[in-house]
């Protein structure tokens, strides 16, 4: 045992790169919502890629360390404090047995990540340590952390030489209350009228309180479907289709209002018309938006999506290189 949870914060879960490759049985990937911040945290503490960390949402926990450890906090600006003393983010820190790590109020972004040298050592379930709370599997007992929980750490050896390493300023993402997300229009987008598709792309949407690991719901416009005689098996509502698969990041519009972007813990399929998908490189940015933030969706083609993905991959490789 190495971390004792004195208070859990609003929603703190164990996450890694996710339970990939199980979509066909209806298992969503789970995993860190902002992969960039999560991975950079692992680089800072010298972990193998894929070591499990904590995803901290909106309001931070109070954690007591029962042995010395090397840690880093990345992602949303929720300033960490060690025994009440403010400590930097995006930088490798050392904590000693008996130290208490707390977090100040959220200043921007939505999710912080705590990486600990050796990784959080919870049992592996279907090749991942990620928590999937809906059916209670993975992570720490299949649920968010609670008061009194105790977490073990993986073997780390001496990593004290890493303390003080930091991500350079230009590489640290800036989170704003106005975000643009790039989408590839497609899937069942033929169900929306042309005017509605235009409106979807021209509206500044507001993140509603329904914004979590399952998905983000937005308000601010009203979209209409092309009238059709509903095909066999689809059900009567114009928003319904014959149930099909939902990609991670896909956007659906139940009832024509309040588009929803499905995220890491979402359902894998269903009967609502989907109109496009947020590109993988922008899911990190989406994960750092919160209720009342503004979001615009910009249509891009596959080439731009792949270029953005490649740019993000290069940036992460550069950071990793600089920290090795």
């Amino acid at each position: 045992m190495a971390i004792r949870v004195k208070s859990p914060g609003l929603l703190t879960t164990v996450q890694d790169t996710g339970r990939l490759g199980e979509y066909a049985i209806g298992m969503p990937p789970s995993g860190a919502m902002d992969v960039f911040s999560y991975q950079v945290g692992n680089y800072l503490v010298g972990n193998e890629e894929g070591a499990a960390g904590l995803e901290i949402t909106y309001f931070g926990p109070e954690l007591e360390f029962t042995e010395d450890a090397v840690v880093a906090v990345t992602g949303a600006q929720m300033p960490p404090k060690i025994n009440g003393e403010e400590a930097p983010t995006w930088e490798t820190l050392s904590v000693e047995a008996g130290d208490v790590l707390t977090f100040d109020y959220l200043q921007n972004g939505a999710r912080s990540y705590l990486a600990v040298a050796g990784g959080i050592d919870v049992p592996v379930f279907m090749h991942s340590r990620s928590t999937y709370t809906l059916i209670g599997l993975g992570g720490h007992e299949g649920r968010a952390l609670g008061e009194g929980d105790e977490l073990a750490l993986g073997e780390a050896g001496d990593r004290s030489d890493r303390v003080g390493m930091a991500v350079v300023e230009q590489q640290i993402p800036k989170y704003s209350k106005e975000t643009e997300l790039r989408v590839i229009i497609g899937l069942a987008s033929y169900r929306l009228t042309e005017e509605s598709m235009e409106e979807f792309l021209n509206t500044t949407w507001t993140v509603t309180p329904d914004a979590d690991r399952v998905g983000y719901r937005y308000k601010g416009g009203e979209l209409g479907f092309v009238e059709r005689e509903q095909p066999a098996g689809a059900g009567a509502d114009q928003a319904n289709v014959v149930d099909f698969g939902y990609p991670v990041g896909s956007i659906q519009v139940p009832g024509g209002v309040e588009p929803i972007v499905l995220m890491n813990d979402a359902v894998t399929g269903g009967g609502y018309a989907t109109i496009g998908t947020v590109i993988s490189a922008d899911r990190d940015k989406l994960a750092q938006t919160k209720t009342n933030d503004k979001t615009r969706f910009r249509s891009v083609d596959l080439e731009e999506a792949l270029a953005a993905r490649e740019q993000r991959r290069k940036q992460m490789a550069e950071i990793k290189e600089a920290l090795s």
């Binding site: 989408v183 590839i184 497609g186 033929y190 095909p231 066999a232 098996g233 991670v248 990041g249 999506a305």
Partner: peptide, 20 residues
């Protein structure tokens, strides 16, 4: 059939709008 990209990580293929 309709072939479509689900972002950069998925390919979605709708063989028909109606179930059979």
């Amino acid at each position: 059939a309709r072939y479509s990209y689900g972002g950069d990580e998925f390919v979605f293929v709708e063989l028909a709008e109606a179930m059979s």
